[in-house]
Structure formats: structure tokens, C-alpha cells
């Protein structure tokens, strides 16, 4: 089997400095796995949205970063975990423009549009876990010229 290029990591989400660090970490992982620039940018942006949700709505938490494989395909999977109040109405929370946090209401719905795989698991009073997965498209070799 292939050894993962990027080891599994677990990063805390407790401050806006953590968000900045997470963005850089995800960018580096995505670049190492051979994601193109646009895919990298989408992934980092989705991570930023979800981490901010974890921080603002979940009262902080952590993110787990893994690199799953599916046959020859490689992917990057991020799980945002908090033990906050949870989301009461998931459909409403995924509606564009719906906000409780003073943002634009694009966090959850926008992040969902940016990635290939989006799974939301929430229990009122117990917390929320959002897992996103993005697969490297095309051929697996990283493009050295990619910016």
C-alpha cells in the first residue's frame, strides 16, 4: 500500500490565529497531494468557513486531517468537530443567506458547494461534526509547475 504523503493531523480551533494556521496547513497538504491551484483555493476556503463555524457557533473544537485513498485516487478529508449546542434545523442552516452569527450566511451552504463530499452530523446539545472530502482530479502525479 502507499504510505500517506501527509500524516494524519489534529489541529485545535480556538482562536483566529488557529484559523490562519489551519488555512496554511490545509493549503500545504493539498499542494503536496497534487491538487490544482483552483481546487486548493476552494478547499482552503471551505476549511476556513467550517473552522469559523466551529469557532463561532460550536464554541471551539478541533479539526482532524486525513488522506484517504480510493483505489488509485487520493483525497484530503477534513473533519470539524465541536461539542457546542448543535444545529436544530439543518435544512435551514444550509440555506443561502441564513445566519445566526452575523456573517453573510454563506458559511455552511457555500462550503458545501466548494467540495465534492460534504457530510453534516449534528445532535442538539451534543455538538456538530462536518466532514468534507476532496479527491485529486485527473492523474495523481503532482504538477511541479503548479502555482
Amino acid at each position: 500500500m502507499h504510505a500517506p504523503l501527509t500524516p494524519t493531523a489534529r489541529l485545535p480551533i480556538g482562536s483566529d490565529a488557529d484559523l490562519a494556521w489551519l488555512r496554511q496547513h490545509v493549503r500545504q497538504c493539498a499542494a503536496d497531494l497534487g491538487f490544482g491551484l483552483v481546487q486548493q483555493t476552494k478547499l482552503v476556503t471551505a476549511a476556513s468557513e467550517l473552522a469559523r463555524n466551529t469557532l463561532v457557533h460550536g464554541g471551539g473544537g478541533h479539526v482532524e486531517i486525513t488522506t484517504p485513498t480510493d483505489g488509485a485516487r487520493r483525497g484530503l478529508r477534513l473533519s470539524f468537530v465541536d461539542s457546542g449546542p448543535g444545529i436544530r434545523d439543518v435544512d435551514l442552516a444550509l440555506t443561502d443567506g441564513y445566519t445566526t452569527g452575523g456573517g453573510l450566511g454563506m458559511g455552511l451552504s457555500g462550503a458545501k458547494r466548494l467540495v465534492q463530499d460534504f457530510v453534516l452530523d449534528t445532535r442538539p446539545g451534543l455538538g456538530t461534526t462536518v466532514t468534507i472530502t476532496e479527491w485529486v482530479s485527473g492523474f495523481p502525479a503532482p504538477r511541479p509547475g503548479a502555482r
Binding site: 491551484l37 483552483v38 486548493q40 483555493t41 476552494k42 476556503t45 468557513e49 443561502d96 453573510l104 454563506m106 451552504s109 457555500g110 462550503a111 458547494r113 466548494l114
Partner: peptide
């Protein structure tokens, strides 16, 4: 940048 613009549009902004 192009990648930022594409992402913002995809995000709905």
C-alpha cells in the same frame, strides 16, 4: 487572482 475569483463565485459571493 483567478482562483480566488472562481472560489468566491462558487461560494455565492
Amino acid at each position: 487572482r483567478p482562483a480566488v475569483a472562481i472560489t468566491l463565485v462558487e461560494l455565492g459571493l
